[in-house]
Simulated scan of single mutants.
Amino acid sequence: MDNEHHQRGKRPRRLRTDGIRPLVSETTLSPRDLIAPVFIDATTEERQPIESMPGHERVPLDDAVARVEEVRETGVEAVILFGIPEEKDETGSRAWADDGIIQRATRRIADETDAYVLTDVCLCEYTSHGHCGVLEASAPEDAHVTVDNDETLALLEKIARSHAEAGADMVAPSGMMDGMVGAIRTSLDGAGFEQIPIMSYAAKYESAFYGPFRDAADGAPAFGDRRHYQMDPANAREASREVSLDVEQGADVLMVKPALPYLDVIADARREFDHPVAAYNVSGEYAMLHAAAEQGWLDLDEVAHESLLSIKRAGADLILTYFAETVAEQL
Rank of each mutant, 00 (worst) to 15 (best):
S240G: 08
S240H: 06
R241F: 01
R241A: 05
R241C: 02
E242A: 15
V243S: 02
V243P: 02
V243A: 04
S244D: 02
L245R: 15
D246K: 05
D246P: 02
V247S: 03
V247A: 05
E248Q: 13
E248H: 09
E248I: 01
Q249K: 00
G250Y: 05
G250F: 04
A251Q: 03
A251D: 02
D252L: 09
D252M: 04
D252S: 10
D252C: 07
D252K: 02
V253Y: 07
L254P: 02
V256M: 06
K257H: 08
K257D: 10
P258I: 13
A259E: 05
A259K: 14
A259H: 11
L260E: 15
Y262T: 09
L263M: 11
L263E: 12
L263S: 10
V265R: 09
V265D: 08
V265A: 08
I266C: 10
I266G: 08
I266F: 13
A267N: 12
A267H: 14
A267Q: 12
A267P: 05
A269V: 02
A269C: 14
R270V: 05
R270S: 11
R271S: 14
E272V: 01
F273Y: 14
D274K: 03
H275W: 00
V277K: 00
V277L: 03
A278T: 09
A278N: 07
Y280F: 15
Y280A: 04
Y280G: 07
Y280E: 06
N281W: 09
N281M: 04
V282Y: 12
V282E: 12
V282R: 02
S283Y: 06
S283H: 09
G284K: 10
E285I: 13
Y286H: 12
A287D: 13
A287G: 10
L289R: 12
H290R: 04
H290E: 08
A292M: 15
A292T: 07
A292C: 11
E294Q: 15
E294N: 15
E294T: 01
G296E: 09
W297P: 00
W297F: 13
W297S: 11
W297A: 15
L298Q: 12
D299L: 01
D299K: 00
D299C: 02
D299N: 14
E302C: 01
V303E: 07
A304Y: 02
H305C: 02
H305Y: 13
E306S: 09
S307V: 08
S307K: 00
L308P: 11
L309C: 05
L309E: 11
S310I: 03
S310T: 13
S310A: 14
K312D: 13
R313P: 12
R313F: 06
A314K: 04
A314I: 05
A314L: 09
G315A: 12
G315F: 13
G315E: 11
A316I: 04
A316M: 11
A316F: 11
D317M: 03
D317E: 04
L318W: 11
L318N: 02
L320I: 15
L320V: 15
T321H: 08
T321Y: 07
T321E: 03
T321Q: 04
Y322D: 03
A324I: 05
E325Y: 06
E325I: 00
E325L: 03
